[in-house]
Amino acid sequence: MTITIKDDVIFEEEIKKSRFICHLKRVTTEEAAREFINSIKKQHHKANHNVSAFTIGDHQEIQRSSDDGEPSGTAGVPMLEILKKRELTNLVAVVTRYFGGIKLGAGGLIRAYAGSVNHAIDAVGLVKIVEQTQLDIDMDYGLFDNVSRYLTSAGLAIADSVFTEKVVITVFADTAELEQLKEDLTEQFHGKLELTIGDKKLVEVAI
């Protein structure tokens, strides 16, 4: 399971007359992250700074940040720390700053850059990306109602139902929980269900 933003977003705020524009984008490779950073730098080439941070991989294996001219440790690292603290991955953040004439100091810069990323994340919302596996449940007609109720009570939506000589119900369950589900179904219905594992897919679930 990985957690990332629901969608790409741009969030702008003004702090002591400086404009801070946070761009968040979903990416899956370091190359894509760097391409996005460069595109923002071109788009905002007149800005004083285009500070960046990104995390890539299921367990944030790749982590990078750049202060882009701000005092060392006051911009890129605080942005990266927000991504790490909130356990977000496959995400690049670029905060563009147009200087307004009032210096913020080291503490003010840290709060501004970290806050900009935090506020943008809150504005767009998060999703978790979960791998699910198809499970086909083959049964006699007499079991259909009870099995359907059981699946509903377990929080599983029925994706498809096929009625021929028997009934086949298709559900998608979190892969990590599939073996337990099979055991529960076998026990609950005394081995009268034929269970067949199908394809896997990635599903986004709002947090």
Results as ranks from 00 to 15, higher is better:
T2V: 15
T2E: 15
T2I: 15
I5K: 03
K6C: 07
D7W: 02
V9G: 10
I10N: 13
F11I: 02
F11A: 08
K17R: 15
S18R: 04
C22Q: 06
C22N: 01
K25C: 03
V27R: 03
T29E: 05
E30S: 14
E31S: 11
E35K: 15
E35G: 08
F36I: 05
N38R: 15
S39F: 00
I40R: 14
I40A: 12
K41I: 01
K41L: 04
K42T: 12
Q43I: 03
Q43N: 08
H45N: 15
K46S: 14
K46G: 10
H49S: 05
N50T: 01
V51K: 08
S52C: 01
A53G: 00
F54H: 06
D58L: 13
D58K: 15
E61W: 06
E61C: 12
S66G: 07
P71G: 09
T74M: 03
A75Q: 02
G76M: 06
P78M: 07
L80G: 01
K85D: 14
R86H: 10
L88K: 08
N90D: 13
L91R: 04
L91F: 01
V92H: 01
V94Q: 12
R97H: 03
Y98K: 11
Y98C: 07
G100H: 05
G100N: 12
G101R: 02
K103T: 04
K103H: 04
G105N: 00
A106N: 09
G107E: 08
A114Q: 10
G115S: 04
S116A: 15
S116L: 06
V117E: 02
V117P: 00
V117C: 03
N118D: 12
A120E: 03
D122P: 00
A123M: 02
V124K: 11
V124E: 08
G125V: 12
G125I: 11
T133A: 10
T133K: 05
T133Y: 00
L135D: 04
D136P: 00
D138F: 05
D140F: 09
D140W: 06
L143V: 11
F144M: 13
V147P: 02
V147H: 08
S148F: 02
Y150K: 11
L151H: 10
T152F: 13
A154T: 10
A154D: 10
G155S: 08
A157G: 06
I158G: 07
I158P: 02
A159F: 03
A159Q: 09
V162C: 10
V162D: 12
E165K: 10
V168F: 00
I169F: 05
F172W: 07
E177G: 11
E177C: 11
L178A: 15
E179S: 15
Q180M: 13
L181H: 11
L181G: 07
E183I: 15
L185A: 12
Q188F: 01
H190P: 00
H190V: 10
H190K: 12
G191M: 09
L195N: 10
T196Q: 14
G198P: 00
D199C: 08
D199S: 11
K201W: 07
E204D: 05
V205R: 10
